[in-house]
Write a protein that binds this DNA or RNA. Sequence first.
DNA 1: TATCCGACAAGTA
DNA 2: TACTTGTCGGATA
Length: 915
Amino acid sequence: MNPVEIEEAVSDLAQQPFEAEEFPFSFLEAFGNKSTTIKKIKSGTSNKTDVEGAVLQRNNIHILASKEGKVIQSLEALRNSPATKKNKAEFILATDGKDFQAENMLTGETVVCDYKDFHNYFGFFLSLANITTVKQIRESAFDIKATSRLNKLYIELLQHNPEWATMERRPDMNHFLARLIFCFFAEDTDIFQDNLFTNTVQKFSASDASDTHIVISEMFRAMDTKKRNRENENIKVWAKDFPYVNGELFSGSIEVPKFTKIARSYLLHVGSLDWKQINPDIFGSMIQAVADEDERGSLGMHYTSVPNILKVLNPLFLDDLRDQLETAGDNNRKLLNLRNRMAHIRVFDPACGSGNFLVIAYKEMRKIENEINIKRGETNKASEIPLTNYRGIELKDFSAEVARLALIIAEYQCDVLYRGQRLALAEFLPLDAENWITKGNALKIDWLSVCPPTGIGVKLLGDDLFSTPLKQAEIDFENEGGETYICGNPPYKGSSEQTIEMKRDLRDLLSSKIKNYKSLDYVSGWFIKAAEYGLITPSKSAFVSTNSINQGLHIPILWPYIFNLGYHISFAHVSFKWKNLAAHNAGVTVVIVGISNAKDDRLKIYTQNDDGNVQEKITEYINPYLIPDFKVIVQKKSKVLSSDLTEMHYGSKAADGKFLNFDSQEKRKIIKLDSRSAKFIYPYLSAEDAIKGKKRYCLWIEEKDLKTIDNIPLIKKRVDQVKSYRLKSKKKTTKDLALYPYKFSEVRFYKGKRIFIVPSVSSEKRDYLTVIPAIENSVLTNAAFGLYDAPMWNFSILSSQIHLIWIKTICGQLETRLRYSNTLGWNTFPLPSLTQKNKEDLSACAEEILIARERHFPATIAVLYDPEKMPKDLKLAHERNDEVLERIYIGRKFKNDTERLEKLFELYTKMTSKN
DNA sequence: TATCCGACAAGTA
DNA sequence: TACTTGTCGGATA
């Protein structure tokens, strides 16, 4: 169960009539215990309690539901119970259906409340559900609750207003939801009178909900009408207490979907929550999912986490502001300068979603400004940081609305926090009508129209500068000498995953600029637009991105263009696994990359180790592989760079729906039924087969054999299956190959007496690349490369540490897996030319490695190369091999991988510049 | 022809 | 459900 589901279950339980006997079990059930687990506790087999009538679940909780008036004594009994300690109960809980008390035995935190309210503390007990990021979730407990309530309301309304669910009306529905959220927030924060909105619905709409939409619509109309015009407009008396809000929020259609009785009660229920607690940074991304079909299932927990947002914003500019604040000390002049500077800083997120980056940036800036004001003794001073300097572009219109709302709420909360409720209220309404979150496609919109150039002492600028001025973004804007910081987490899509629209976006943006742009990830568009934007007005940019953009093919395609515009990578967080609070996290490994065209020589590379600690390294240059120094970009090559290395071949691609290959059992069956089959069956090896010692076979049939196989039903059937499989392909070449279903779609069947298999993808945890010999006439799948009858020293080089670090650095990766490439890794590998003696020595080392493996027959490669358990003799053989090879490079062993890379890059540069 | 890649995918612990 | 580790075929050059 995810937190939202748990919240719902706990709330349901709190509404049921209290039954002392059942309560402990219902409580455990609400936190996700399976019915079998509950049964075991009920029957007593796993109830470890020593207190009469209580229930104790080992490692979790000790619960006693008691008679009325005995809660304090009950809790005491649980606290003193030896079983509580012995079974390591994390919580004790006592209730009589009126009072509710609980304690966390590890932290000492307690909950004391009325029984009917205990659902508000579901976050307190979340570790019962094995949800480990408890702290973060508890902080956003309110947001989860509000989201789940709104979700119910939204679904109920759509169900009974099907026309509002259509594509055309969806924006109206979303706008309606945004208005509701604003009203809920306003009525709980004194912007409206206490509970004005909810109370008005309750009092003035019929309880059968027949006129709820009319009442709400009238309130919206009031909020869009200036007080002095209200009489003329015939605003109903009961709506006169609503302030004039405007800010675009209530202008436009005031139509409201029709309510059912249930919808009305949901609405009143959502309204009864305490919306003061809303976290605009998190809430936005959660609520966004309410309106988003695709994300409904995961209920919105798909957003950039606050720590990750700070990984972008801190190095981009917040760290610098904080440094300046510190340097300024108590110097009034310097503090003032800093404040002025901050007032002219724009933060721009061209993929802003529901605005978390902008909200966090705004809140952090207000925090710094407040410290300045305290030091200057100006604590009541109005903020000089304009909300309209936090700009965004967002494709989905509801997200854009929520982003705007989140920023308004953040501003209000900051004002309350730093200036007090009274001042915050005085200036809040009416909202600014400016629309500084632009709805649209960020790769199509001219960013200068959203964030016009500020120049230095240059005023703004004729319309001719805006190639496609957008009405909504045409804000008069003077921000002389201002800085712009571009940030965000744009969408990632690899070239073969992109939709037609995405491909069109990249084509329009890049076709005239970058050769081979079609191989780039969709996210590249944001980096390029950011770089081009920064040529016009001072800015720095940083995005969260798939780590692919700093690997393999992206390096020579994307980065030279950005560098040629005068940019460098100003900071970087190297690959780390994407994580947020979602039940199912997106499977992607990300980097954070900052680019800048300003002078800067203290660049930072951040590395995160497994326990989450971040290290920083300062350097003068960060290359596109995100390692310090080495200004080298490796291009892919179709021939080997070193004449001593043998050509490496890509495997054969079947595109057969797996009908041309099978396991040993199937092979025996086929041959048993018709012995003529045997001559068409070959060993078939992918990376996994070779590493784990699995045996697979494939059919290899040539045109001349067609007559024969027509008479072998088992084979004929498979061939037919391939045909129908291929016909279903959306790729034309595959479809065409349905004409030749007996053949692999791409044929690379090389003959050789001695084949070395190089896995195309394999675990990055091993100390060596695993190169594996195969028997003659093996067919390699396209998940493996092959060397055919190559001299033994090729094996020695492939198995070396120095080759491994080259591959890890230069080739692409699958997340952080090792991914081999002949064109990027093997053909580019810089090797000094070998003497006859060198070749003999290396070959001997290679033999040693193979012999060492043999000694452990039949252990698989996976077992032999497990970094924890690698046999000594094998390890020794590898070390010997490394030593001999490295002596050829520099006459001794390298000290470390940095030294290896340094030598390799030097040699690479030398060897490639010769031709 | 030839090959790089996957807001992954499929398996195990 | 957390962790490990590499398929397969589309899209592109």
